[in-house]
C-alpha cells in the first residue's frame, strides 16, 4: 500500500512537472527553403544556420523548442494567429514588418543583396528582375524602375533566371553565393544593394517576456563569440559582430 501511494505521488509529481514544462514549449516557425539560413536536409529535418542558432538560443534560454515549417507568404499571419511562437526564416528587420510583429535584436549583420544572372552584361535597371514575394528585395525592385516578377519560393526565382523569364534575380548574397559557385552558367554581378537591417527573430508583439529571453540569449552568444563562429560556418560571406 505504501508503495502504491509512493508511486502515485511520483506519478502525480511527474505529471505536474510535465504540465509545468508544457508551458515552455516554444514552436519555432521557419520556411525551410532558404539555404544556408534554413532548409530541409536529406533526412527531411529542418537544418541550417537558423536551426543550429535557434537550438542553441533555446538551450541558453532554458526553453524546449520544436521546429515547424510554413510557407513564406503566410508566415507572419500564422505567427500572429498563434500557430507557432517565433519566426526564424532569414527575415530582415524592417519598419513595415515591425508594425505587425516584434523583432529581437539582429543575429546577422545586414547582408548585402546580390544580383545573379546568366551573364555580366545584364541590364539591371531596365530589365526584368525576379524576387521572392514579400521580401525586402521585392520591395526594392518595385521602386528601382526595373520590372519586378515575384515568386512564392526562392527556388522559383532562380529557375526564372535559368529559363530566361527574368534577366536576373535579387536575393540575399549568402543564399545566391553557394548556387553561383556550383553552376558555372550563373554569375553574381558586381553591383550589390545594401538593403535591410540584419536578420532577427520575429515574435508576437504581445510576447514581451519571450522576446526578452531570446534577446538575452542572443546577447550572450554575441558576447562569447559563439554567434560569430556559427556565422563563419554557415554564412562565410557575412560580416561577424
Amino acid at each position: 500500500m505504501k508503495k502504491l501511494i509512493l508511486s502515485a505521488a511520483a506519478l502525480a509529481l511527474s505529471a505536474g512537472m510535465a504540465l509545468a514544462a508544457s508551458h515552455s514549449t516554444i514552436r519555432m516557425g521557419t520556411e525551410g527553403a532558404y539555404p544556408p539560413y534554413n532548409f530541409i536536409n536529406d533526412k527531411g529535418e529542418v537544418d541550417g544556420f537558423e536551426r543550429e542558432l535557434g537550438d542553441e538560443l533555446c538551450k541558453r534560454a532554458k526553453l524546449k523548442c520544436t521546429w515547424v515549417t510554413n510557407e513564406w507568404d503566410s508566415i507572419i499571419p500564422n505567427l500572429v494567429s498563434g500557430n507557432y511562437d517565433t519566426i526564424m526564416a532569414g527575415m530582415s528587420i524592417t519598419p513595415e514588418r515591425d508594425e505587425v510583429i516584434d523583432f529581437t535584436q539582429a543575429y546577422t549583420q545586414p547582408d548585402p543583396s546580390a544580383y545573379m544572372a546568366l551573364s555580366d552584361s545584364v541590364d539591371i535597371t531596365g530589365g526584368v528582375i525576379a524576387a521572392q514575394t514579400n521580401t525586402i528585395q521585392a520591395g526594392f525592385v518595385a521602386q528601382s524602375g526595373a520590372t519586378l516578377v515575384e515568386f512564392a519560393t526562392p527556388e522559383e526565382t532562380i529557375a526564372a533566371v535559368r529559363n530566361g523569364e527574368a534577366d536576373a534575380v535579387l536575393a540575399d548574397k549568402s543564399y545566391l553565393a553557394p548556387i553561383a559557385a556550383e553552376d558555372s552558367s550563373l554569375v553574381l554581378l558586381a553591383k550589390e544593394e545594401l538593403i535591410g537591417g540584419g536578420v532577427g527573430m520575429g515574435l508576437r508583439e504581445s510576447d514581451g517576456e519571450l522576446k526578452a529571453k531570446f534577446n538575452a540569449a542572443i546577447q550572450s552568444m554575441k558576447d562569447d563569440g559563439t554567434l560569430n563562429a556559427l556565422i563563419a560556418k554557415w554564412l562565410p560571406d557575412s560580416a561577424p559582430f
Binding site: 527553403a33 529557375a159 556550383e182
Partner: peptide, 21 residues
C-alpha cells in the same frame, strides 16, 4: 515534389542535383 525537385547544391545535400521539379 516542389521541395525535392528544387535544385540542391552539394553544400547542403549529399545528393546534389539541378532543377528536377
Amino acid at each position: 515534389a516542389r521541395e525535392l525537385g528544387g535544385s540542391k547544391t552539394a553544400r547542403f545535400s549529399d545528393y546534389p542535383h539541378g532543377d528536377w521539379r
